[in-house]
Simulated scan of single mutants.
Amino acid sequence: MQTSAGQDRLSVDDTARSPIEAGDPATDSRLFRRCLGLYGTGIAIITTETKGQRAAVTVNSFASVSLDPPLVLWSISHGSRSYPLFKNGGRFAVNILASTQMNVSRHFSSKIEDKFAETAWSAGEHGSPLLDGCLAHFECETYSQVEGGDHTILVGLVRRASRFEGEPLLFAQGQYCVAYSHPEVSPSPEVGGLKPETSSEGTIIPQIFEAHHLLSSTFDEHRHAEGLDISVARVIACVYDMPGLKTDQVARATYLGQRDTEDALATLVERGMLVNAVDGQLILTEAGRQRREAIRKRWQDFQKDQLAGIPEGDLRATLRTLSKLITQNRAAK
């Protein structure tokens, strides 16, 4: 098969890369989950109600199956408290979360007994709870079930679908994300007869998103140089700044899910950078504190390097603009 010079170069670059880690997922489940975490997904909360009992779980295993008939699927762990209700209930609803619903995702991922008590929702036409503020609802009847290891895959026949305005909440590499157009596929000003912008209106927000993406990707090299991925880096920073927290508190403070937090903590324990006190408090060892201080030093140097050469007046103007944007959006929450 013939390829262009550009394609050949990309192929060679990809082949030359060495993995950060590799192994047998059968003996290293956390490695398996870290690899799966590189596949970005949306976030859905699956709800059901049967004989007056309601249940909900947060998942990113949701996927479409078929258009004719309209089928979707998701999977639930056999160890979930809600497993019997979903297994035997015969119906469920898929609630696709909007970018403004990060706290909703965290709430339904927690160990709170009654997750509906402080949540705005209504009963769907087919009996399952529908959460307010979502981007989409799929009200389903259970079509089939497939056993898959420690999970059951539930296939749903969609009886009713609803769509709303908004942007999706995403999850990748152990953190919540939002979607925006990739700079390489964004249309140029000349496309479709558009004229270049002559003012900042309509241009600064995309540039903020692009700058954040590029800066984060560049700083990833520093994290990896310290042997940390973004989840572990967040957790070690949290425990360093607030020693004595417990696992649930770290999960809330870092906006990581319970499982990703537990994986990150286990990694730190294995590397001798963290210990669990008898009462469950998390304490960094001297090695852990040194690693946190090293990554913070890299962050300080990184900022200096990035801002070097930018006039002080431009920096002050940018800070004022960003402060206004942050203030007005916090007030809107």
Rank of each mutant, 00 (worst) to 15 (best):
L315H: 11
R330Y: 15
G227R: 01
E312M: 14
G42H: 10
G42M: 10
L169I: 08
A266K: 12
A26F: 05
T48L: 05
E184A: 15
P189V: 10
L274G: 05
A120F: 08
V94I: 15
R289F: 00
T203S: 08
I20N: 05
E147T: 12
I295K: 02
L325R: 06
R91K: 15
D132H: 15
H107N: 05
A253Q: 12
Y240N: 14
Y83T: 01
A55D: 05
S200W: 12
D279E: 01
G79Y: 06
D314E: 13
S128T: 11
E262I: 05
G52N: 02
M1C: 07
D220K: 12
L135I: 07
L157F: 10
A225P: 02
Q7M: 13
Y143F: 11
L154C: 03
Y39N: 02
S18D: 03
K51S: 15
V65R: 06
L67A: 15
E21N: 01
D263S: 10
I96N: 03
S199D: 14
A251H: 04
R252Q: 15
V275E: 02
A211N: 09
H137F: 14
K195I: 04
P311I: 03
K111I: 00
F171V: 03
Y176A: 08
E118P: 00
L135D: 04
M102I: 11
D150Y: 10
F164G: 09
P19Y: 10
S64V: 09
C134H: 02
V269N: 01
G227H: 04
L170D: 02
G89D: 05
R292P: 02
S99I: 00
V275R: 03
E141A: 11
L31M: 14
I310A: 07
G257I: 01
L284F: 07
Q173I: 05
V158L: 01
H212Y: 13
D279V: 01
G37V: 04
R259T: 11
Q258N: 09
V146I: 14
V12C: 06
R160D: 08
N88Y: 11
Q207N: 13
A123H: 04
E167A: 14
G174C: 09
D8N: 08
P243T: 02
M242L: 07
H78E: 12
G244R: 07
R289C: 14
R271G: 13
L130I: 03
Q145C: 09
C35A: 12
Y83Q: 08
C134W: 03
R289W: 00
F138A: 08
S122W: 05
T327P: 00
V104D: 11
L194C: 10
R9G: 09
L214C: 06
R271L: 10
F219M: 05
T267H: 06
F92K: 06
I96P: 01
Q290E: 10
R160Q: 13
E141D: 13
P129L: 07
R330V: 11
S217E: 10
